[in-house]
């Protein structure tokens, strides 16, 4: 039984829930912005912008703390049940996951000074498109939370495959690039980490989507098929396969 939006007899409960939803929207917006800024800083080699992303991550951390405190307080005071309980647990977990998304953006920003503009490295050309999709997933997963929309959440989880495919593709080309250009291995390794960060952001958006789905439907999101795993590429095929 999903939330139908009717009000609680105790109005203060609704006030708390609405405040929490507002804060989740804010932390989501800030994280999404952090990804966009970090990627712009990377493309333009803008050290100032990169430093800004690092500094602003503190706000995201602070928001996470406030969300956790209010969730704790609401659970303790209101003893929520059914979809209220599911939504509050989801809120609590989502705030942690979105904070991690902020950390990945910060990590990308921290690598900006050691990479001299992505245009120099061929394999990096795919990064902006990858980042756009990862950001979209973050935005849509939080939109799904705001709308309590399980279908949109499911769609986000399915679209994460695109980010994974990007990562696999970038992984391959960076490895090839490293073999061909051993002197750039350092920078290329940083690029690989950035791609990995974006891939993790996609996974985290999927985590958010899974919680939205659970909060809305009361059952876990169905498993999706995983695509090619980049680590398979490094392994020798075993006998019998």
């Amino acid at each position: 039984m999903a939330n139908t939006g009717t009000e609680h007899t105790v109005k203060a409960f609704d006030t708390d829930i609405n405040e929490l939803r507002g804060m989740v929207a804010e932390i989501g917006g800030r994280s999404e912005q952090a990804i966009a800024k970090a990627m712009r800083a990377l493309e333009k080699h803008d050290l100032e912008l990169a430093a800004e992303v690092v500094a602003e991550d503190k706000l995201i951390d602070e928001l996470e703390k406030r969300i956790d405190e209010l969730t704790f307080q609401t659970i303790a005071l209101r003893a929520p049940m059914a979809d209220d309980l599911r939504e509050l647990i989801a809120t609590f977990k989502i705030s942690g996951v979105v904070e991690r998304i902020g950390d990945y953006a910060k990590n990308i920003a921290k690598r900006v000074p050691v990479i001299a503009g992505t245009h120099k490295l061929g394999p990096a050309s795919l990064l902006p498109s990858m980042s756009n999709i990862a950001s979209e997933l973050v935005r849509d997963s939080l939109e799904a939370f705001a709308r309590r929309d399980a279908d949109l959440a499911l769609e986000v989880s399915e679209r994460d495959q695109i980010v994974d495919d990007f990562y696999t593709s970038i992984f391959r080309s960076v490895i090839t690039y490293m073999i061909e250009n051993p002197k750039d291995i350092g920078e290329a390794a940083h690029l690989l980490f950035i791609a990995k960060n974006l891939e993790r952001i996609g996974d985290h958006a999927t985590n958010v989507a899974e919680m939205v789905y659970f909060a809305a439907r009361g059952e876990p999101m169905p498993e999706r098929d995983r695509g090619e795993n980049p680590t398979d590429l490094l392994e020798e095929p075993s006998n019998g396969r």
């Binding site: 039984m1 609680h8 007899t9 049940m81 059914a82």
Partner: peptide, 10 residues
């Protein structure tokens, strides 16, 4: 829906 409204305090 009735169960849900009751147990969630609505």
């Amino acid at each position: 829906e009735k169960t849900r409204d009751y147990i969630t305090g609505r």
